[in-house]
């Protein structure tokens, strides 16, 4: 009987540990890339829990540091993979670093395992991390801080600086081109037709008046108007007197001041006075007068065309001889 009871207890215990849903106690494994790093180096610390597939586990919640002096870089990475029939491995990987030299103890980390009716805590294996400083070569020379690394130059940046320069260059080239062209044009001799001497024009106009035989057609007014116009035009060109805008008296008073024309003053006065009568007072003239005044107009122009002008009052040898 006793043997039978013992057997039953043994079987039940076995069954209890072997067939229950939480029959397997999770196994925790701690691994670290290395236990010795240079200050600032980053290494991986990994906790693996091998457990029943349905068994949940809860890792500790980490913020910034694992323990004093050891920083966690980035977010913890949790992963799982199959391990065998009904088992799997859940891992928690931390990237850790330290910025202070020394030997650090990494204490066991609590991993919570909820069981039926209670939560069990499994502790990981403790480990350590030795942080070494950088060896300083005190024998070498002091070096400057490294310069900033230059980013590669883009096409847009090139255009921003090169376009204004190109524009200014283009303007300069255009200006040089036009100046050169203008200089070339200026250098080219312009064919200027020499101005006809006033006496030539005036004599030609008087010839025309003569040929038109105006007074013979009872057009004395037009005849004298045209003769006086030619004479006044000639005076304005020859003596630089604005005779076209002056009255007969004003013309005569200015002519009186000129040595050359003064000699022919009487001819001119006679012509202008009579012409005023014909033009403004319906004056009629006889044929002899018409011929004489046209001849006088020719004479006045011929006698004054070549003479050197001597202002009144200037006493020169040439003037005396004349």
């Amino acid at each position: 009987m006793f043997r039978r009871i013992d057997f039953v207890i043994l079987v039940l215990t076995f069954q209890l540990f072997n067939n229950s849903s939480f029959g397997q106690i999770p196994v925790v494994k701690t691994s670290i890339d290395t236990n010795r790093i240079t200050i600032g180096d980053q290494i991986k610390l990994k906790y693996e829990v091998e457990k029943n597939k349905q068994q949940p586990v809860r890792f500790p919640v980490y913020t910034e540091s694992l323990t004093d002096g050891i920083e966690i870089v980035g977010a913890p990475v949790i992963d799982s993979l199959k391990s065998g029939k009904g088992l799997n491995i859940v891992s928690l990987q931390l990237t850790i670093t330290s910025f202070d030299t020394g030997l650090y103890y990494i204490p066991p980390q609590p991993i919570l395992v909820p069981l039926s009716g209670f939560t069990d805590t499994i502790l990981t294996e403790p480990t350590y991390l030795e942080v070494l400083g950088v060896a300083i070569d005190t024998t070498g020379t002091i070096r400057d801080i490294k310069a900033n690394r230059r980013a590669p130059v883009t096409v847009g940046e090139i255009l921003i600086y090169s376009l204004p320069v190109l524009l200014i260059l283009a303007i300069i080239l255009i200006v040089i081109y036009y100046l050169g062209k203008k200089e070339k044009q200026d250098a080219e001799p312009i064919q200027v037709k020499p101005e006809e001497p006033p006496h030539i024009t005036a004599l030609r106009e008087l010839d025309k008046i003569k040929a038109q035989k105006l007074w013979q057609q009872q057009k004395q007014k037009e005849y004298y108007t045209r003769i006086t116009y030619v004479i006044r035009w000639y005076i304005s060109k020859r003596f630089d007197i604005p005779a076209l805008e002056l009255t007969s008296d004003e013309i005569l008073s200015q002519i009186r001041e000129l040595e050359t024309a003064r000699i022919n003053y009487d001819i001119l006065e006679d012509l202008l006075s009579l012409a005023d009568l014909v033009k403004f007072a319906k004056g009629e003239t006889d044929p002899d007068e018409n011929i004489r005044h046209l001849d006088n107009a020719f004479d006045f122009i011929k006698k004054t065309k070549d003479r050197q002008e001597i202002p009144k009052g200037v006493d020169t040898l040439e003037a005396k001889n004349e």
Partner: peptide, 13 residues
């Protein structure tokens, strides 16, 4: 001179 237009001559006088 000249023989002025009669009216003008008369007017002038």
């Amino acid at each position: 001179m000249s023989q002025m237009n009669v009216n003008i001559q008369e007017l002038n006088e």
